[in-house]
């Protein structure tokens, strides 16, 4: 469902060009949990940010269900972004809005008075186990709870894909484990494809069906997680 072909990203800095992605090919199937692992600066963050065009690739294509997002602009790009949820390392919740308002926010963005928005928000809060925090503000929540709100928010528009940009890197090991379990459960329950980038092998081992290793802007290895554990131990 996601086909990345010959993807390159070059940053033009005053001090010279920096190649963040060099001819990256990746195919991610519907319903998979796909991990991209690499050291800081390897290009993994740029890669995931290209998938929803937060970064504009220099060349190459990214097809999502056959549509090339790299060619999209304006309204068309905003429409496809609504079907790509994203969560971040530092959560990026709206601090002046309640948990409930945060989860409702993508529905508002998508437009119109959506019938059943209240029900949808409640259902999502139940899914992430935060029903009783509906009226709380993000500042009153722990890191793990904030990421749960972010996950509920990312799922509000029933996305096909959930992009996780170092989603557990700011969390302690125990909280990381519970967030990963939640992602796994969501993947099984609603079949959303999950792409996650991380620098932690434990994260990949815990939930990824497949994994790609990125090193110096290139994918050096990819395939089913089980086959590659040994290789990661070498490179990481």
């Amino acid at each position: 469902m996601i086909e990345i072909r010959n993807l390159c990203k070059v940053y033009h800095n005053p001090t010279g060009d920096f190649v963040a992605l060099d001819d990256v090919d990746l195919t991610i199937a519907q319903g998979e949990i796909y991990g991209v692992i690499g050291l800081s600066g390897a290009g993994k963050s740029t890669l995931i940010r290209c998938i929803n065009m937060l970064e504009k690739p220099s060349s190459g294509s990214i097809r999502i269900d056959g549509e090339d997002i790299t060619r999209m602009r304006g309204r068309e790009l905003r429409r496809i972004r609504q079907s790509l949820g994203m969560i971040f390392q530092d959560f990026n919740l709206l601090m002046q809005k309640t948990v409930e308002e945060n989860v409702r926010f993508p529905l508002e963005i998508a437009g119109g008075k959506q019938a059943g928005a209240d029900g949808k928000v409640r259902e999502l809060l139940r899914l992430v186990g935060l029903e009783e925090k509906a009226g709380a503000y993000p500042a009153q929540l722990s890191g793990g709870q904030k990421q749960r709100v972010a996950i509920a928010r990312a799922l509000a528009n029933d996305p096909k894909v959930l992009l996780c940009d170092e989603a557990t890197s700011a969390l302690d090991p125990l909280t990381t484990k519970s967030i990963l379990e939640l992602l796994k459960r969501i993947n099984e329950k609603i079949g959303v494809t999950i792409i996650l980038i991380t620098h932690e092998m434990k994260v990949v081992e815990a939930i990824c069906d497949k994994v790609a290793v990125i090193e110096n802007a290139r994918i050096v290895k990819d395939g089913p997680t089980a086959e590659h554990i040994g290789h990661f131990q070498e490179v990481m």
Binding site: N52, L54, L77, R78, R79, I80, R81, Q82, L84, M86, F88, N92, L93, F105, P106, I109, A110, N157, L163
Partner: peptide, 8 residues
């Protein structure tokens, strides 16, 4: 950025 990613 999060709002941009949501399609705002």
């Amino acid at each position: 950025e999060a709002a941009t990613a949501m399609g705002a």
